[in-house]
Simulated assay, not measured.
Amino acid sequence: MNTVNETDATQPFRSGLVAILGAPNAGKSTLLNRMLGQKLSITSKKPQTTRNRILGVVHRTGSQMVVLDTPGIHQAKKPLNARIVDTALSTLAEADLVLLVVDAQKPDHPSEQLLLDKLSQRRLPVLLALNKIDQVQRPDLLSQMERWSGAFPFKALVPISAKNGEQVDRLLDAMEAMLPAGPPFFPPDSLTDLPTRFIVAEMIREKAFRLTGQEVPHAVAVTIDAFKEEKKGSLTRIHATIHVERDSQKGIVIGSQGAKLKQIGEAARKEIEALLGVDVFLKLFVRVQKNWTKDTKSLRKFGY
């Protein structure tokens, strides 16, 4: 259920693109899901979970916000991470407003300074969401708010908890007020511009992230091999491949007698069924693609 704001009928309708930027693990994807009122962007505690630009449409009575969730900005050295950062920064070219999300519990000063440097080169309005306030003491929060107020000419600073929704409505009000007047970009029932296959692949990748150890996540990519409706649309049969870089990682993803792969599949299938609203038969395969995160051709193949 999307957040609805009572609006004066004399006020113009507002619409625009909002780029969410932040360091890895700042809570950007959790915040987008909270704004939408349902899950679209995958999340985990591991950095660089989000690798692509994820578009979500927030509908309100007086506005439509096209919100672009982006990968975490950091000093990237590896080819995959460099492409991830480029993806995030590219959203600035199309944004009407930037929403900078920072972690009040565990600040990432180098990444945050990199972001401020990039934003100082643009003439875009920037709103700061100081996230995870449910995990810090009030004196520390007030100190951080004072520090951030002096660090950059933000149009507004809103402390929030994306996890429990605290002050997210206030944040949406502040975002809405900064949008230009204009008609909606998408129909009223739109959630995203992403194809269903992409969302399904991301759901599978999230479960592989969450259910495997530290060695595996950054080496995981998912492709959809088959996506077919059967039984007059009441069943969708999906075949997908989880790609890793090394044989040892393949063993971790499969697990003893296939137990880990089965766990990943079951967890993903439940979310995919909720997304599609039908029964799903999900078959997963695991393939080793040697050093794909360092290979330009492979990066393109997997959409990075």
Rank of each mutant, 00 (worst) to 15 (best):
L128A: 02
A129L: 02
L130R: 00
N131R: 04
I133L: 03
I133R: 01
D134H: 08
D134G: 05
V136Y: 04
Q137L: 09
Q137D: 15
R138V: 15
P139G: 09
D140P: 12
D140N: 07
L141T: 08
S143H: 12
E146M: 10
E146N: 14
R147S: 13
W148E: 04
W148R: 02
G150N: 12
G150C: 03
G150F: 12
A151L: 15
A151E: 15
F152Q: 01
P153V: 03
F154M: 09
F154Q: 06
A156I: 10
A156W: 07
L157R: 11
P159N: 01
I160T: 01
S161M: 01
S161A: 04
A162Y: 09
K163S: 10
N164L: 08
N164H: 14
N164P: 05
E166G: 00
Q167R: 15
V168E: 01
D169V: 06
R170Y: 00
R170E: 04
R170I: 00
D173P: 11
A174C: 13
A174P: 14
M175K: 00
M175D: 08
E176F: 00
E176P: 06
E176S: 02
E176I: 02
A177K: 13
L179E: 12
L179Y: 11
P180M: 03
A181T: 05
G182E: 02
P183G: 09
P183L: 00
P184Y: 05
P184M: 08
F185A: 09
P187C: 05
P187F: 11
P187Y: 06
L191V: 15
L191E: 05
T192Y: 11
L194S: 12
P195F: 09
R197E: 13
F198M: 00
F198R: 02
V200E: 07
V200A: 09
A201P: 08
I204M: 05
I204K: 03
K207V: 07
A208K: 01
F209E: 05
R210K: 13
L211K: 07
L211I: 06
T212L: 07
T212W: 05
E215S: 03
V216T: 07
P217M: 07
H218R: 08
A219N: 13
V220W: 11
A221L: 03
V222P: 06
T223D: 10
T223K: 12
T223E: 05
I224Y: 07
D225I: 02
D225S: 05
A226H: 15
F227E: 12
F227K: 07
F227Q: 06
K228I: 08
E229V: 06
E230M: 11
K231I: 05
K232T: 14
G233H: 12
S234R: 15
S234P: 10
S234Y: 10
T236Y: 05
I238H: 08
I238C: 03
H243Q: 08
